[in-house]
Design a protein around this nucleic acid. Structure first.
Length: 815
RNA sequence: GGGCAGGUGGCGAAAUGGUAGACGCGCAGCGUUCAGGACGCUGUGAGGCAACUCUUGGGGGUUCAAAUCCCCCCCUGCCCACCA
C-alpha cells in the first residue's frame, strides 16, 4: 500500500482554507451559543514560532474545533504583541527599522500558523504596534491619568553605568546588565506609576466570579499578598520624632529588643545628630557609605550576611516603657511597609541571626503549649501556635488566635498603633526609556503641569528616529527629536514638552481580548454591544509565567474600564476560566535555549513528518499541564499511527459495509471517551483510544459502516485537520469536515451482555469470570465456586463475608 | 524562607477506591527485502523450570479491597522571595 503523502495533501487543504469561512466568529448570532476561546498572542521574535507556541496553540485549536463541532459559534482570534526589547535590540544591531522587522516576522509567524492548521479567525487579527491599535492603549492611559491612577513619582530604576541606560528588570541578569555584563546600580528618576494597589482588594474578591483553576487563583492571591497587621508608633528618647513600624505579629510586642531602620530611612540623619556623639555619627556615615557601595544585587539576593550599625538613639516600647536601641540595618527595605521593623529575635529567624551577631537581647514571648518551660536556644526552633509568656496581662493566651486581636485592639485604643493592611503587590512602574513601545500620551506644560492628550488627538504616533539607543542622560531616544518633543499644551495652548518615555510591553496585551471583539472600530476601543455578546472569554489558555503579572494587569485594566463604564456593566470579570499549559523541554531534558543548542523549531518537523503528525504528537506527549521532554522517536510513532489510520479508511472507503457489531462498540467507546476527555483538556488519552480503535479495526475481517468511519475521522479531525479533511472527502463527505457536528455515542453499544468480573479472595486477585453484569450475587458465587482455580482458595477456610460490586468485582473473605 | 506541582517498567505515560503498567517509544525473535530502511506478526515490570511470589519514593494507618483516602518522613521540578 502506498504510504500517505502528507506534503501534497496538507498543501492542498491549506490553500483551500484560505477561502474558508467556517472558522469565523459571527457577531450577534442567536441560533448558536457563543464561545470565546483565547490563547495568549505571541511576541513575534526573529527566530520564528517556537515549539512551545505550537503546543499551546494546538491545544487551544483542538478545543476550539471541538466547540465548533458541538454546534457553537466560536471566536478564536490571534494577533501580535510586537512591541519589545528583542526587536529593538535587533534594530540597533542590524540598523533596520523595528517597524520593518516586525512586519517581516509577523508574516513569518502567520505563515507558520497556517501550515500548522490553526483555525484562527484571521479577520480579527490585531497588532499592538499599529497606530490604530495603540491609539486605544494610549487612550486607556489618559483615562488612568484623569482618574488619578497614574502619576509621576521618583522611582529607582536599574541603571547600567557603562551603557548609560535604564534597564527593565528582565534585562538585569544576576545583578548585571544583560547587554554588556556590567554590574548595575540603582538610579532614581521620575517615572509614571499606575496605582494598581488601589484595586488590590477587588482583584482578590473578583476571583470569586471566575472559574480559574486553583493554582492560578493561588498565584494571584499570593502575588497580591494581602497582610493585615498594625503600624506601631515608637517614641524616640529626647526627640520629637517617632518611628513607625509595620508588623503582622502585634502579639510579639513584649519581645521587641531593638528597632532597625533602612539606610534610606528619612529619619536617619536626625536620629544620628540627636545622639550627640561624634564617634557614633562617624561610624554611621562610614556604614552608610559602605552600604551604598554594595550593589543592589548583593543587598537583596538574600545570600549576603545582614549587617547593621547602632545609631546611638533609643526608642520607647509603648506597652512597657522599655528603652530599645535603634539600629540601621541593610536588611530593611525602604520601599516595603514603613521602612522600619521591630526586632523580635526569639520569634523570627532573620532577627535571631541579627541579634546573635550584634549581641542584642532575646526575649521569648511564646512557648509551645505542650512544653511551657521550653526556652528558645536556636533560631530553628521558632514557635508556632504558642502560648503567651512575658507579656503582661496577655500571658497564657493563644498567640495567634487570641493575643493577636487582643494586643492589636489594646494598642489601637491607647493610640500607640493603627490598623494597617499591607500588600506585596507594588504599584506598576509604567515608564520605559526605550524606543520600541507606545509613546506615553502626555505633555508637560509650565503652567498646567502634566496634561493628557485629548482623545481626538490620539494616537501620538511613534516618530521615526535615526538611532534607537537611549540618550546619554538615560532618556528615551525620542528625547533627541526636538520637533516632536516641542509641542503645545492641549489646555492653554502655550509651549509644552512631550513625555519621551514609552510604555512597558504589558500595556498592549492588557486589553487585546477586548479588541478582538471589534478589531476595526475607529470610534471606541470596541463596541459595547459586541463586547457584551462575546465576553467573558470562556477559556483562556496561557503559561504559568503569565499567571501573575499579565493576568493581574489585564484584570485590573478591565476593572478600571468597567468603572469608566466603557465595558458591559453585567460582566465584572473578563475571563471566565483560565487554565495553564505545560512546558516542553529540549531532547536533553533541559529548558530550551539558544545557548544550550537544544531548541526545537516546529518548521523542521512539519517538513519532515507533516503538521498533522506534529500536532498529534504534541497532544499525545503527556498531560496538558505537564513538563515534557521532546522525543523525536515518539513523533515517528504518531506518524505511523496516522498512516495506519489512513490505510484503514482507504481499505473500507469504497465499500458499503454492514457493521460487524464489534466495530460499532469500539467506535462508540471512542466517541464517549473523546467527548468526555477533550472537554477536560485530556488529549493524550483520546489519542491513545484512537490508536486502540484503529488497532482493533485493522484486524482482518472487520466490517465498518460508512457512518462509523465518519465518526472516527471526526475525532481525528480535532488533532490532525488536514488528513481528516482528505479522508472525509474519500468517504464522500462534503467540504468541510470542520463544519460537521461531533458524533454522539449511543448507550446501547456500550452495554454488553457479558463483562469480565474479577474474583478476589481476601483482597487478592485469584481469577476472573465472564458473566452478565446484571447477575445477582448468589449466581456469581455459584459460578466462582465452579472454577478450580478459585475453589482452591475458597476451600482453605470458611467464607465469612462476601462483597459483590456489580459488574466489577467480587471479594470473598475467608478465614 | 513562602507558594504550587509532582514521584508508577529501560523511557513518555494510563488507571482517582475494585485485573497496576492501557497507548506510544525502545528492545528481542520471526517474516518481507540483494542490503539498509520502511512495513507486518509475536514477545516484553522483576524473580522463578514451574506452581507462585514480589512490585506504584520510604514508613505507618483506614478498608473486604489502596498508585488512588488519612498521618509522618524523603526526594525532584517550577514560580516567588532580606515582605517585617
Amino acid at each position: 500500500m502506498a504510504s500517505y503523502d502528507f506534503k501534497s495533501t496538507e498543501k492542498k487543504w491549506a490553500e483551500k482554507y484560505e477561502e474558508f469561512d467556517g472558522n469565523k466568529g459571527v457577531d450577534f448570532e442567536n441560533d448558536r451559543e457563543k464561545f470565546y476561546m483565547l490563547t495568549e498572542f505571541p511576541y513575534p521574535s526573529g527566530s520564528g514560532l517556537h515549539v512551545g507556541h505550537a503546543f499551546a496553540m494546538t491545544a487551544a485549536d483542538v478545543y476550539a474545533r471541538f466547540q465548533r463541532m458541538q454546534g457553537k459559534n466560536v471566536m478564536f482570534p490571534m494577533g501580535w504583541d510586537a512591541f519589545g526589547l528583542p526587536t529593538e535590540n535587533y534594530a540597533i544591531k542590524s540598523g533596520r527599522k523595528p517597524q520593518e522587522i516586525t512586519k517581516e516576522v509577523t508574516n513569518t509567524f502567520h505563515e507558520q500558523m497556517k501550515k500548522l492548521g490553526f483555525s484562527f479567525d484571521w479577520d480579527r487579527e490585531v497588532n499592538t504596534t499599529l497606530p490604530e491599535y495603540y491609539k486605544w492603549t494610549q487612550w486607556i492611559f489618559t483615562k488612568l491619568f484623569e482618574k488619578g491612577l497614574a502619576e509621576k513619582q521618583e522611582m529607582p530604576i536599574n541603571w547600567c553605568p557603562k551603557d548609560k541606560i535604564g534597564l527593565a528588570n528582565e534585562e538585569v541578569v544576576d545583578g548585571k546588565c544583560e547587554r554588556c555584563g556590567t554590574e548595575t546600580a540603582k538610579r532614581t528618576i521620575s517615572q509614571w506609576v499606575v496605582k494598581i494597589t488601589d484595586y488590590a482588594d477587588r482583584l482578590i474578591n473578583g476571583l470569586l466570579d471566575t472559574e480559574f483553576i486553583e493554582k492560578v487563583k493561588a498565584a494571584q492571591i499570593n502575588w497580591i499578598g494581602k497582610k493585615e497587621g498594625i503600624n506601631i508608633d515608637f517614641e524616640i528618647e529626647n526627640s520629637v520624632h517617632k518611628i513607625q513600624c509595620f508588623t503582622k505579629f502585634p502579639e510579639t510586642i513584649y519581645g521587641v529588643t531593638w528597632i532597625a531602620i533602612a539606610p534610606e530611612h528619612p529619619l536617619v540623619a536626625e536620629i544620628v545628630s540627636e545622639s550627640h556623639s561624634t564617634s557614633v555619627s562617624q561610624e554611621v556615615s562610614q556604614y552608610l557609605k559602605e552600604t551604598k557601595k554594595k550593589s543592589e544585587f548583593e543587598r537583596t539576593s538574600g545570600v549576603s550576611e545582614k549587617t547593621g550599625v547602632f545609631t546611638g538613639a533609643y526608642a520607647i516600647n509603648p506597652v512597657n516603657g522599655k528603652r530599645i536601641p535603634i539600629w540601621i540595618g541593610d536588611y530593611v527595605l525602604a520601599n516595603f511597609g514603613t521602612g522600619a521593623v521591630m526586632g523580635v529575635a526569639a520569634h523570627d529567624k532573620r532577627d535571631y541571626m541579627f541579634a546573635e551577631k550584634y549581641g542584642l537581647d532575646i526575649v521569648q514571648v511564646e512557648v509551645p503549649p505542650e512544653d511551657p518551660a521550653y526556652l528558645i536556644d536556636s533560631y530553628e526552633k521558632v514557635i508556632e501556635d504558642g502560648l503567651m509568656v512575658n507579656s503582661g496581662k496577655f500571658n497564657g493566651m493563644k498567640a495567634r488566635e487570641e493575643a493577636f486581636g487582643a494586643v492589636s485592639n489594646w494598642m489601637i485604643e491607647n493610640e500607640w498603633a493603627t490598623k494597617k493592611v499591607e500588600y506585596h503587590l507594588r504599584d506598576w512602574i509604567f515608564s520605559r526609556q526605550h524606543y520600541w513601545g507606545e509613546p506615553i500620551p502626555m505633555v508637560f506644560c509650565e503652567k498646567d503641569g502634566w496634561v493628557s492628550i485629548p482623545a481626538t488627538d490620539l494616537p501620538v504616533v511613534l516618530p521615526e528616529v535615526e538611532k534607537y539607543l537611549p540618550t546619554d542622560t538615560g532618556e528615551s531616544p525620542l528625547a533627541n527629536i526636538k520637533e516632536w518633543v516641542e509641542t503645545t499644551c492641549p489646555k492653554c495652548g502655550e509651549k509644552a514638552k512631550r513625555e519621551t518615555d514609552t510604555m512597558p510591553n504589558w500595556a498592549g496585551s492588557d486589553w487585546y481580548f477586548l479588541r478582538y471583539c471589534d478589531p476595526h472600530n475607529t470610534d471606541v476601543l470596541a463596541d459595547e454591544k459586541k463586547m457584551e455578546f462575546w465576553l467573558p472569554v470562556d477559556v483562556y489558555v496561557g503559561g504559568d509565567e503569565h499567571n501573575t503579572l499579565h493576568l493581574l494587569y489585564s484584570r485590573f485594566v478591565y476593572q478600571f474600564l468597567w468603572d469608566l463604564g466603557v465595558v458591559p456593566k453585567n460582566i465584572t470579570e473578563p475571563y471566565k476560566k483560565r487554565i495553564s499549559h505545560g512546558v516542553i523541554l529540549g531532547p536533553d531534558g533541559n529548558r530550551m535555549s539558544k545557548s544550550k543548542g537544544n531548541v526545537i523549531v516546529p518548521d523542521e518537523f512539519v517538513e519532515k513528518y507533516g503538521a498533522d503528525s506534529l500536532r498529534t504528537y504534541l497532544m499525545f506527549m503527556g498531560p496538558f499541564d505537564a513538563t515534557m521532554v521532546w522525543n523525536e522517536r515518539s513523533l515517528v510513532g504518531v506518524r505511523r499511527f496516522i498512516e495506519k489510520f489512513y490505510n484503514l479508511i482507504e481499505l473500507h472507503a469504497g465499500n458499503n459495509e454492514v457493521s460487524d457489531g464489534e466495530s460499532a462498540k469500539a467506535i462508540n467507546r471512542l466517541i464517549k471517551q473523546a467527548t468526555e476527555d477533550v472537554a477536560e483538556f485530556k488529549f493524550n488519552t483520546v489519542i491513545a483510544r484512537l490508536m486502540e480503535t484503529v488497532n482493533a479495526l485493522s484486524k482482518p475481517g472487520s466490517n465498518i459502516t460508512k457512518s462509523d468511519l465518519g465518526s472516527m475521522i471526526k475525532v481525528l479531525s480535532l488533532f490532525a485537520p488536514f488528513v481528516a479533511e482528505e479522508l472525509w472527502a474519500r468517504i464522500g463527505g462534503g467540504f468541510s469536515i470542520h463544519t460537521q457536528q461531533f458524533p454522539v455515542y449511543e448507550e446501547k453499544y456500550l452495554i454488553s451482555d457479558t463483562v469480565l468480573l474479577t474474583v478476589q479472595v481476601n483482597g487478592k486477585l485469584r481469577g476472573t469470570l465472564m458473566i452478565d453484569p446484571e447477575e445477582y450475587q448468589e449466581r456469581v458465587i455459584e459460578e466462582a465456586k465452579k472454577s478450580e482455580k478459585i475453589k482452591k482458595y475458597l476451600d482453605s477456610g470458611e467464607i465469612k463475608k462476601v462483597i459483590y460490586i456489580k459488574g466489577k468485582t467480587i471479594n470473598f473473605v475467608v478465614g
